[in-house]
Amino acid sequence: MSSQNENQEVRSPVRFKAFGWLMQRITGVGLLLFLGLHFWLQHMPNGFLATAEEYNSILRELGSTGQEFADAIAEGALKEALPGEHVITYSKVLERLQTPLWKMIDVMLLFLALSHGMLGVSRSLGDYMHNERLRKIAVAAGWTVSVLLAWQGTMAVMSVGMN
């Protein structure tokens, strides 16, 4: 039994795995910080969200300026805030993302989450897919998707307020 274990370890790229293990911890600690901040930012009552009163007046203004908004309100795709609700809204996001530091924070979160998540996915795949070739293909596909998502996400955040 133990000789079987040793064989398995010799076959697998041990150092690469150890690097992944370390990176998972480093990105994990980073995420603790950035995801904690993200949660506070997007959910807790703070100046980066609109209060119910603010949001309802933003909504009235949007409805009177653009046909697209007026239609969305009529269809119920945009709706008034409930009392006490704190709402994510474009003008507030724009206000914050006008500061380069906030953009960097979002991009850091993006990279940390993607690399940490993908390291975890490839480890899980390693546990369940015993066919080496198939697994390598799956992991490569995963990283390719991650790179595309990283590009997509960076573009989305960086281009806010740039036009």
Partner: peptide, 16 residues
């Protein structure tokens, strides 16, 4: 979050 490119689309996205 691709909807960040279009204020109306973003507003609808967060409303869902």
């Amino acid at each position: 979050l691709r909807s960040l490119a279009d204020p109306a689309a973003f507003e609808i996205y967060v409303t869902t």
